[in-house]
């Protein structure tokens, strides 16, 4: 239960932490595009360097960043193997039974691995590790605000999202508390047949739903008591402002992407077709 942490926000004081969250979202999208632009050894080398640079700038321990890759290891390994065995090319390396491994296949597999790695760590460092969930929803609301013209209730969605995010830890804590209370009365969640185990969840789920519904009602009352009436005309405590450093960061990201495209034309060792 302890493992559930939505938004892996890691508190630190760094350049990336202080950037405007809207710019960070845009930069993250650009960075994802960048990882797919890479095609040559040189551009991938620069991509790896950029990951290292981002981690250094964010002041997040490498150990923490690598932890975010762990759940994806199976997918990475799978694509790696697929690429090695199913790519065809001109330079045959090994041949046994029905398998033929080509140099191109090995390169593609390595590139794929680096791409996923950069994708996960890059987005983590640029966004989820360095931005609080609240900042994230605020930024989304601001970025999506043009949709208001099309009568999309952007504010309502953003509010729903921030309330959800806000209550995930609360509900987790609550679940843990209820589980402990029922365990203290001898409830057993881990043994017995599947049906028995499913039944053993009733003593957790009923109290949890009851309290979640009560909590929602209380929250709605509390919001109404403070005259909450939706997004129109509402001012904010923290107004997002775009500074020069944010613009510089965004421009650097664009330059980085353009640079990668140029590096794809450097015929050094191997270039993907």
């Amino acid at each position: 239960m302890k493992g559930i942490s939505f938004g892996q926000y890691y508190p630190a004081d760094s350049v990336i932490h202080r950037l405007d969250p809207r710019i960070k979202i845009i930069m993250t999208i650009l960075y994802i595009i960048c990882t797919f632009l890479c095609k040559s050894v040189t551009s991938f080398a620069v991509l790896v360097l950029s990951v290292i640079a981002l981690i250094m700038f964010s002041r997040i321990p490498v150990r923490v960043v690598l932890r975010s890759v762990r759940p994806l290891l199976i997918i990475i390994a799978f694509t790696f193997v697929i690429n090695i065995f199913w790519s065809t090319g001109e330079q045959l390396l090994v041949e046994f039974w029905i398998f033929r491994i080509y140099a191109e296949g090995v390169w593609n597999a390595v590139f794929m691995f680096l791409r996923i790695f950069a994708l996960v760590t890059g987005t983590g460092v640029l966004l989820t590790y360095t931005t609080t969930p609240m900042d994230l929803t605020d930024a989304l609301e601001s970025l999506l605000s043009p949709l208001k013209k099309l009568h999309v209730p952007v504010h309502v969605f953003a509010m729903m999202m921030s309330i959800t995010l806000r209550f995930i830890p609360t509900l987790t804590e609550e679940t843990e508390k209820i589980m402990n209370a029922q365990k203290a009365r001898g409830a057993d969640f881990t043994s017995g047949s599947l049906i028995r185990r499913a039944k053993s969840l009733i003593p957790i789920l009923i109290p949890l739903f009851v309290s979640a519904i009560n909590r929602a009602l209380e929250l709605a009352n509390a919001m109404e008591c403070r005259c909450y009436h939706g997004g129109d005309g509402r001012t904010r405590l923290n107004v997002l402002k775009c500074h020069t450093k944010d613009m510089v960061a965004a421009i650097l990201m664009i330059v980085f992407g353009v640079g990668l495209v140029f590096l794809n034309f450097v015929p050094f060792i191997y270039v993907m077709k």
Partner: peptide, 17 residues
Amino acid sequence: LCFRVGLVMQYPEYQLF
């Protein structure tokens, strides 16, 4: 153990189901 040491947690009314 949990039958020998009975624990009543804080605000235990949430455990009713």
